[in-house]
Each structure stands twice: as structure tokens, then as C-alpha cells.
Amino acid sequence: MSTFMTAVSDGFPVFGQALLNAFILLATSCVLSTILGALLCVVDICAHRSVGLLVRIYSWLAQTTPPLILLFLAFYGSTMMGRAISPMTAAIIAFVFFATAYYFEIFRASYEGVPRGQFEAARALGIPPLPFATGVVVPQVIRIAAGPFVGRTTVLFKETSLASAISVSEIMSTASAYIYSGASPLLMVAIAGGIYAVINIALIALEKQLTRKAAAA
């Protein structure tokens, strides 16, 4: 146990940097994907059916292709474009590509979850679309989507571990680096796992609470 503690305290600054990198990857791709996913959702709701079909095809492709393949594509893409992009940027591009689909699906399903009768009531009252959307629909979509959104974000956080495959120095690649330099593999992997677990368990608890709150309304 004491060797474990020293390893943790020795490893902390480095894992701290790794955690920061993982967080940058997660936060950047989460924010960008949320914006893009919400935009796609609006497009899907408002635009012509054929556009909606395109959105769905994209979403299906982005969700079915393994993240690793997308990471490699972004990585090789960045080196081939001549102007070399950092692995982190390549990872963000790949993450935004598939996470946008995740969030789009959540927003779309949440929109469907808003009881339809309210739309009819708004029409009968002669409420213009924009105030209705911002004052009634969006707040309810946010409430319904909150739980699944956090749930998907835990998945996204776990997937940041895959960015190690294109040498982004996040948690798993840091653990691997320690292992190569002779640290106990099991211990290093356990520390990495512990970091993910602590953060994600908190997020899962939050997800549960938000879902319960949405169900109560």
C-alpha cells in the first residue's frame, strides 16, 4: 500500500498534466459538439425531409465507425495535408466528428419527448415560433436532455483514452510511458483507471439525479 501511495504522489504532477490534456480534449470536443449537435437538431426539425435524411446518414456513419478509426483518419489526414496539425488538434477533430452525432441524437430524442399538445396550444394562441421555441421548447428539451447528455459525456471522457493511440499525452499514454520506463504495469493502469473512475462515478451520479429530476416534472 505504501508503494502505491508513493507511486501516486510521484506520478501526480505528470498525471496532473495528463488529466489536464484529457480534460482539454473532452471540454473542447464537448462544447463544439454540443453546438454543432444542437444546430443539426434545428436543421433536422426545420429543414426539408431530404436534408434530415442526410443528417441521419451522417449520424449513423459517425456513430458506427469505431472512434479509433476516426482518430487514425484525422491523424493521417493532418500529416498528409502538408501543414502538420498537432495530435491534440487531430484528436479534437475526430472527437467532434463523432460526438456531434451523439449529442444530436440526444437533442433530437429530447425534442420528441416534449409533449405535442403544447405545440398545438401555442398555435391556437397565435404565439410566434421564436418565442415559443426559446420560452417553452428549449427549456424542456434541456431538462429532458440533461441526464442523457451527462451520460454521453462520461462515454466521451472514457473515449479520450483512445487518443493515446495517436500519441496525445493523456492519461493512458502517460500510464504506458511509466510502464515502458519500468513502473509496475498493473499499478499504473490501476491509477489511470482510478482517475477515470473517480470523475465518471461523480458524473454518473449527476446523470442519475438529472434524469430523476426530468422524470419528476
Partner: peptide
């Protein structure tokens, strides 16, 4: 079914 705005 009343159709009140659920968030208001």
C-alpha cells in the same frame, strides 16, 4: 388534455 406549457 390541458396542454399547459410544462416549464412555466
Amino acid at each position: 388534455r390541458f396542454n399547459l406549457f410544462a416549464n412555466l
